[in-house]
Structure formats: C-alpha cells, structure tokens
Design a protein around this nucleic acid. Structure first.
Length: 280
DNA sequence: TTGGCACCTGGCCG
DNA sequence: ACGGCCAGGTGCC
C-alpha cells in the first residue's frame, strides 16, 4: 500500500530521536503503526508499506495532516529558525502511542540514546509478542498490565536500573485506570502536564515529550541539555532578559521558546535538534 | 521557587 | 586490561 505525501522525509522523521521502536534495513524501516507490524519505505513522494496497517493509521502516525508550510512560516520568525527548518526538510513529528512514548522517555532519563534503545528492545523481547513482516522478526511493545505485574527486579535486568520502579509505578497507574490518556488528550497543555507530573519518573522534560510526541500538544517544548545549549547560543540575550539577571533555568528557556514560537513550538524544537550538527 | 547532589548501568576513553 | 567518567533528567533536601 502507499500514500502520496508532501514535505515529508521518512528517514529524517524516524531517525531524529523522537521514536525508539524502529529498526532499519537498507531502505526499509521495521516497526509498528497502530499496533500492527509494518515495513515502511519512502519512494519519491510516496510512503509505501507492507503489513496490515490501515492507510488512515499510517497517515495519522506520520502526522500527514500537519500543514508544513504553515508550520514553518509560523515558527520561522527569524533567520536562524528558518535555516534550521531548511536543514530539517521533511521532518514530521510522529503521533506515537502515549503509553509506549511515556515509557520510552521515562527510560531516557540520565541515559544515552543507544542505551535507551537497548532498554526498550529488552522490554519488547522479554514481554512483547513476536511477529514478522517480510521475514523480519518484530516484537510488540508490552502492555501496561504486563509491565505493571512484572517484578521490579526483572525490569531492572532489562537494563532500566533505578528507572524500573518508575516504569512499574506508571504502568500500574495506566493499567488501574488512574491515568487515562484519552482524557489527557482532551485537556489543555498546562492541565494535562500537571497530571503527568504527578507520576514518579515524569519531570518537566519527559512530560513535554509525552505531550508533544503522543498527545497532540504541539506547543510543548522539551528542554534537554542540547536544546538549552542551542537556545542560549542563539537567543541568549532575550532569555537572560526574561530570567531577570538570574542564571536561565530550563523553565525560562521553555517559556521563552513558547512565547516566541507559539502553538507550534514543538516543531521549532525538532527543527533545532535535527539541524544541530549543521547550524547550531 | 531555586540550587545542588546522588543515581542504575553500559559503553567509551586512556 | 580495567578503572574512571559520563550520559536526551528526576527526586529529594
């Protein structure tokens, strides 16, 4: 099956660090869309895939509903951001599953990218269901129930370390109905974030990642060490003014960015991150 | 509200 | 080889 696209680049979107579940073999990417195992590739302006995923789920996952020229013009109010967006051509945010996205970023704390990928892969292999597409073996992401009942020591052995307790607690909240993603999706940014922050292992940055990558809150602006560095380099003057002489905190950087880039601030963050080696 | 420190663990560096 | 250092943050004081 295939879908025609515009302003879309599959590899850029899948490899910019927002999702961890994809493995690449040549031009094909293997992973899950809408719970279904798929192999996806880009051919000219088409997204092409093998597997039983529905076209509407593919379009939804890759956010083909976003109007990219409008997004770029909304966030590109200065030369630096326009240049960053230019180097990140075709990058889309992905609309990920909130549960998997939450666990992914809870695991991201104080780890590096290869290690985060390893932790999540270990969880899939230990608790997920095995399937295959095109002869390639794939494991689904474990359900909240599965991780809720897994012994913390077992999660630790997947390489989660001290994050095991956070993941287990979060899984119990989701499995037990104490956290409802469908409800979060309906709430405004600040209210949804406040609820996420109640859970151990979810701080400001992780909450913003969950909101941006899975709950359609495009005004979320996750501030990690990279983004903070880039923001201070290019907007240091304005940020320090907002900080009122104090050392700029992550919160100040985020508030500055949200005020400057507006309701699509999250895209500005992704453009900067993707272009960091080129222009930052 | 802000600032500072410890943290599981695996991969990299010297 | 093998010990020290650091990593996409968070909890806690």
């Amino acid at each position: 099956m295939r879908i025609k696209t515009r302003s879309f680049d599959l590899a850029t979107s899948l490899c910019c660090g927002q999702a961890f579940g994809w493995t690449r073999e040549g031009e094909w990417f293997y992973g899950f869309v809408g719970g279904r195992p798929v192999a996806v590739r880009q051919h000219r302006s088409f997204i092409e895939w093998k597997g039983r995923a529905a076209a509407k789920d593919v379009a939804r996952y890759f956010r083909l509903d976003d109007d990219m020229p409008a997004v770029v013009s909304a966030v590109g109010s200065d030369a630096f951001m326009r240049e960053a967006a230019g180097h990140a051509q075709g990058l889309r945010l992905l609309r990920q599953d909130p549960w998997e996205c939450s666990v992914s970023f809870i695991c991201s704390a104080y780890a590096n990218i290869p290690r985060i990928g390893k932790m999540l892969d270990n969880l899939r292999r230990k608790y997920g269901k095995r399937s295959a597409v095109d002869g390639v073996e794939l494991f689904s992401f474990p359900s909240p129930k599965q991780l809720a009942r897994a012994p913390a020591a077992e999660l630790k052995k997947c390489g989660l370390g001290y994050r095991a307790a956070y993941v287990k607690g979060f899984a119990q909240a989701v499995a037990g109905g104490g956290l409802d993603f469908a409800e979060l999706r309906r709430l405004p940014y600040a209210e949804a974030k406040e609820i996420l922050l109640r859970h151990k292992g979810v701080g400001e940055k992780v909450a913003d990642c969950i909101l941006l990558f899975s709950l359609d809150r495009l005004e979320a602006f996750p501030v990690d060490v990279w983004i903070k560095r880039i923001m201070l380099r290019h907007y240091g003057k304005g940020i320090r003014r907002l900080a009122g002489g104090r050392k700029p905190s992550e919160r100040i950087v985020r508030e500055f960015a949200q005020a400057k880039f507006g309701k699509h601030a999250g895209y500005a963050q992704e453009f900067m991150y993707a272009a960091r080696k080129r222009v930052c």
